[in-house]
Simulated assay, not measured.
Amino acid sequence: MRKYVIMGVQGSGKGTQAQLLAKDLDLVHIGVGDIFRWNVRNHTKMGAQVKRTMATGELVSDELVESVVQDRLRQHDWNYGFVIDGFPRNGRQAEFFMESFDLDAVIHLELPDDEVRRRVLSRRVCPNCGMDYNLIGDRPEQEGRCDICGHELTTRSDDTPEALEARLRDYHEKTRPVLELFQRKEVVHDVDGRPPVDEVQNAIRKTLGLPAYVPADDR
């Protein structure tokens, strides 16, 4: 059973890398941001709370994040293990994680703040089907329209310059110290998050001693 955590600042690609790793290794991917976005799209009580928080430019509370992750892990559907991104966000959560689970590795995707700003402020999303786009390297075929359903694309409500600066501050002040706690267990692996997706995935697998990643088109 494998248990991995992928950490990185907003826009570092941790969700994408977690999905690729989980799919090939038959692991359960637990993406905190994905869970919140699903609740917002489906108009749940939690979704309304998250939407109100994002509308003010604030960050979702650590308590809510912790509650969501604990509830998800209690489902115990991760027979072969899990890969989680977006958690832990502070020292207390990291301590809980180390006490509750014997982690195999923590992957830290390194990305300079300037590149974070460039990536995040270029993101677009389809509010109808949830398809994600990025105007840097994954543009829709028709400008401003979803390739899947044709709906007009929008910017995520939390992808504003103000909200991004708040997330960067939060990451550097609270999340970076989490890495220091994990480093005591010698499970942290730093990986450059700037190269293309496939290269980053292979760098992750190399540092974990796993077989190389082969894109679906090349199989």
Rank of each mutant, 00 (worst) to 15 (best):
V5F: 11
R145W: 06
E162Q: 11
R119M: 09
K3N: 01
P195Q: 02
Q75C: 11
G13N: 05
L210R: 00
L164T: 09
Q49A: 11
R145M: 12
H108F: 12
V214E: 08
V40M: 13
A216T: 08
K23M: 15
L179H: 05
P140D: 01
D85G: 03
I148M: 09
D218F: 08
L121I: 09
D170Y: 14
K206E: 00
K174I: 04
G81M: 03
R41V: 12
D158M: 04
L135V: 05
L208I: 00
W38C: 06
A18W: 06
S12H: 03
V69F: 07
R176L: 15
D114V: 13
Q70S: 14
Q17K: 02
N128A: 13
D24K: 14
T175Q: 04
V106M: 01
D217F: 03
F36A: 02
F96A: 11
L111I: 07
A105D: 00
D147A: 04
D104R: 06
P195W: 07
M98C: 10
I35T: 09
S122E: 11
C149Q: 08
K45Y: 12
T53R: 08
S12K: 04
S157C: 04
L109F: 02
V69E: 09
T56F: 04
Q142I: 13
D114F: 02
G193K: 00
N90I: 12
D114W: 08
D85E: 03
Q17N: 15
R92F: 12
E173Y: 07
V191I: 09
E180I: 15
P127M: 02
Q49G: 08
E66K: 11
H108P: 03
T53F: 00
R139K: 13
N128Q: 12
I6W: 01
T155E: 05
R74Y: 12
D62N: 11
C129R: 01
D34R: 07
I84Y: 02
L179T: 04
R194A: 14
I6D: 03
T154Q: 09
Q70V: 12
G91S: 11
T154M: 13
P140S: 10
V197T: 15
E99D: 11
A212Y: 08
Q75K: 15
G144V: 05
G13P: 02
D85H: 04
A55M: 04
N39V: 06
K3H: 09
L168M: 13
C149R: 10
H151M: 10
D62F: 12
F101M: 07
L103Q: 05
G31Q: 05
K45L: 14
R89A: 10
Q93S: 08
I35V: 11
V5I: 14
L20D: 02
S122R: 13
R52G: 14
G209M: 03
A18V: 08
S157D: 15
G144I: 05
A163M: 01
D198M: 05
L103P: 01
T160Q: 01
T44N: 04
H108T: 12
F36D: 08
E143R: 06
N39I: 01
D77S: 14
W78M: 13
T44R: 04
I30K: 06
L109E: 00
N128D: 15
D218R: 15
R184G: 15
E63N: 14
V200A: 00
P215W: 10
R123E: 03
F87H: 10
R89C: 09
N42V: 11
T56M: 08
E141Y: 08
R205E: 00
V191H: 00
F182P: 03
I107S: 00
A166S: 10
D71G: 07
V32C: 07
